[in-house]
């Protein structure tokens, strides 16, 4: 009897991703276990979505690329060498597929961040004040985030989604593990400054 309360193969223990659980889920999926596959999809799709979103492909193509990464995993389930590192493998695959799609479409220009061009108007006076302030804050934060350099966006996105360890993030971004902490602080400081600037200019 499979409980609907929790996934049968949790990937996280006490909030942290357990590499052994990830490897076990990959092996079970390879042996045909559908529930194990579902666990992997639930666990890693938010992360993959975050990775692919940084390419600003638009919703349909972003979904397309994420699904292609999952297809690649299905194709390679039997031959994957390091099942515990499947998160990194998926991210690398997704980035490659995003690049392929961009080039296949011959697009040199990426689509502008939709959030920036379609900023909703400030909430009217009928809106409860607290709600309006909160919405405004989120809007500012989103705009400020879009104004960060790409490397900051990618790093903060991965940290915010929180399924990869620092070691895996270091591998993914090809940076020394020791520099993640300092870069994180630097990027967050920059984000704060942008929020302030945008807030003043608004």
């Amino acid at each position: 009897m499979v409980s609907t309360e929790s996934l049968p193969y949790p990937l996280r223990r006490e909030g942290r991703v357990d590499q052994n659980d990830v490897a076990a889920a990959v092996r079970r999926a390879a042996s045909g276990d559908r529930a194990a596959w579902d666990t992997l999809v639930e666990g890693f799709t938010p992360y993959l979505f975050a990775v692919v979103s940084t390419f600003r492909l638009g919703p349909a193509d972003t979904a397309e690329v994420v699904q292609t990464a999952w297809l690649r995993l299905v194709e390679h389930l039997d031959t994957i060498h390091q099942p515990e590192a499947v998160g990194g493998w998926l991210a690398t695959t997704a980035r490659r597929e995003a690049l392929r799609l961009i080039r296949a479409r011959g697009r040199e220009q990426l689509i502008d961040d939709v959030d920036i061009v379609s900023v909703p108007p400030l909430d009217g006076p009928s809106e409860p004040e607290q709600h309006a302030i909160e919405a405004d804050r989120k809007r500012l934060l989103r705009r400020a985030f879009g104004g960060l350099p790409d490397n900051c966006q990618v790093l903060l996105h991965l940290l915010a989604v929180g399924i990869l360890s620092y070691a895996e993030i270091a591998t993914q971004l090809d940076m020394p593990i020791g520099s993640i902490g300092p870069t994180r602080s630097r990027c967050l400081d920059r984000l704060r400054r942008l929020v302030t600037e945008l807030g003043v200019g608004a």
């Binding site: 975050a50 979103s53 699904q67 985030f145 915010a160 929180g162």
Partner: peptide, 19 residues
């Protein structure tokens, strides 16, 4: 970072289902 996590869009449920 937690504020950021809240504004970053989660994957659409239909994408998770399709995957």
């Amino acid at each position: 970072l937690a504020d950021l996590a809240a504004i970053l869009l989660p994957p659409p449920p239909e994408l998770v289902a399709a995957s």
